[in-house]
Design a protein around this nucleic acid. Structure first.
Lengths: 335, 335
DNA sequence: GAGCTTCTTGTAAGCGCTTACATTCCTGTG
DNA sequence: CACAGGAATGTAAGCGCTTACAAGAAGCTC
């Protein structure tokens, strides 16, 4: 077997024309059963597989979806992308992956590359990017969907939840437990609308309760970073009773650091996370957090993108994120 | 902008032939500067981007690498794939992802699909698969690399470490601490040579020390599964002093369950993990485990695959996996 | 300045596939 | 039984690109 067999080889082997072979593969009912059987046997015998480049060239469809995500090291995206991929795979679409590392310029480049590669549709994370990315997509008529964020009437259909509202609910709940000295550990907010919305939501809850805005420390992703962010926060205000974190990994790091400092969580200090990734309930004490439906988002995003790609329409979907109350958040001591 | 401009449009605009435009884009030095400038201006003016399908069709190279991984939900693969992808992206290659969900048949299908899609090379996880996958790859002349496993003289170059040897070292160390009643919680071994090798390695260490082979419980991936596997193990032998787990997630689940049962870890029961993913040091007590160089594997695998794709040769790489001693493993009580 | 090499550009043949259109072969009808 | 009409299949024209080969231009040697 020196080279891959072509349609023509199959046609010759089956004693039919290439058109018939093509029809057998794409529109089987246009071919009479007997012929079809003969052709399929030849396909089998030669181990024929269609050449997608050729097919794409004429069909102008590649059956490929591109996704640009910040990084798969974040479990949140890894899980969501897996769900996204499962839906794609079931529909015989393939996933072309690019990562931006949270860099808007890298993201814009990746989108262009993906489109040049013939992606039929593109998945984007969050709305926070330069307008000309949206314009580019529109000018190329490439369907796209935003996930991990929800915006009604945004530039693209989206599948997500309201980060600000969810965080606001979490913090309001904490306020109900008596917390009034609050610190915030946020992920990097630049170019990340989810991170920003979470901060906004937390401050809104505090504002609504007439409580002083939280001190905010911003840090990159990681356990260690969560720990040192806690140090900085306590430096600025040693009397905090609650530290609200932008995600579970930062929270887990903060919890560990707090305990290393001899603080008992939640007796001395309550700490909350966000995302509810696997480790949230594993941390000691288990994290109070917000359960984000990552898989559902990935799945719904895939369904919507596939709909758009096949010429159907798709509306945005707002999922909801539930509070997930565990032991890391408790009443303020003495209240 | 009704349709994307083609090479021909650019040629017409620049007043040259399509061949010249093509050369400007691919082998600029074969075109005299003045012409080149004119052509590039036309490219710019029309917003031309080459059609990859057409290019791939004739060049028989797609600048695309395919990867078939069990699932990205496993942090181990998510991290490794991210590293793999980073290398690819730097070399302007794209990553086409498929997942097998640990199903050999799905994996074989995915490989075929990837190759039909024109992947220039393929990344596979572990060696455990039907021979005809290797034959298929060979017959199609598609370079492939195996990661997460190392085998000298295997059917494909590989980048990995010796799972059996690493586990053997870990268990030998534990034996040195006095453990002689050992249980094993393994991931599903069918179609997973890493999981099998870990079991083999553990039993080898026990055998070498003249200790009875460990009771083995096999379970799917997840915290909860680790917990119930521990139950089953203790059912069969309540006097275990050490439970060796095939990965950190199972170990974390086992630790939690042990504590829920009122057992103190490691005082009553030592538990070890494998992989050293982020949560290993977060569990209480932190897990003794084996540090697997996931990122380094992903990166080295990408470099090797890229070398093969560009016609160079590549040799296997054996990385090493270090023991990572933390508190979840301790001397047997009273020794 | 003839004959040669070297460099630049053009011509045109595909790559493997889909599909509009043409052709052939059946059917059923009057 | 001739013929319309439909079903099954074949013919061949591209899709947008790369590249072998041809052709023309320019510089060189002797």
């Amino acid at each position: 077997m020196s080279k891959a067999p072509t349609l023509e080889d199959v046609a010759a082997a089956a004693g039919v024309s290439t058109a018939t072979v093509s029809r057998c593969l794409n529109t089987p009912d246009k071919v009479v059963a007997q012929t079809r059987r003969r052709v399929l046997a030849a396909v089998e015998a030669l181990g024929y597989a269609p050449n997608f480049s050729a097919r794409a060239l004429v069909a102008k469809r590649t059956q490929t979806i591109g996704a640009v995500i910040p990084t798969m090291e974040n479990a949140v995206f890894a899980e969501g992308i897996q769900a996204f991929q499962d839906v794609l795979q079931a529909q015989r679409f393939m996933l072309l992956i690019a990562s931006s590392g949270y860099d808007p310029k890298a993201e814009a480049d990746a989108v262009r590359t993906l489109v040049a590669r013939g992606a039929d549709g593109v998945l984007l994370i969050g709305f926070d990017r330069d307008d000309n990315v949206y314009e580019f997509l529109a000018s190329q008529r490439i369907p796209a969907v935003v996930a991990w964020a929800y915006k009604d009437g945004g530039p693209l259909p989206s599948v997500g939840f309201d980060n600000a509202a969810a965080m606001e609910r979490l913090v309001s709940h904490a306020i109900g437990l008596g917390h009034a000295r609050v610190g915030l550990i946020s992920g990097i907010q630049a170019g990340n609308d989810r991170a920003r919305a979470r901060v906004t939501g937390a401050q809104a809850a505090l504002g609504a309760a007439g409580i002083e805005a939280a001190t905010v420390v911003e840090t990159s992703y990681g356990f260690a970073q969560g720990g040192s962010a806690l140090d900085r926060l306590l430096d600025r205000d040693p009397d905090l009773t609650l530290v609200v974190c932008g995600n579970d990994v930062l929270a887990a790091g903060a919890v560990r650091r707090a305990r290393a400092l001899g603080l008992s969580v939640p007796a001395d200090l309550s700490i909350t996370g966000f995302d509810d990734i696997g480790l949230a309930e594993l941390v000691d004490p288990p994290l109070t957090t917000v359960r984000v439906p990552h898989r559902a988002m990935g799945q719904a995003a895939a369904e919507r993108l596939l709909a758009l790609v096949t010429g159907q329409s798709a509306h945005s979907l707002r999922l909801d994120a539930q509070l997930c109350l565990r032991e890391s958040l408790a009443k303020v001591r003495g209240k």
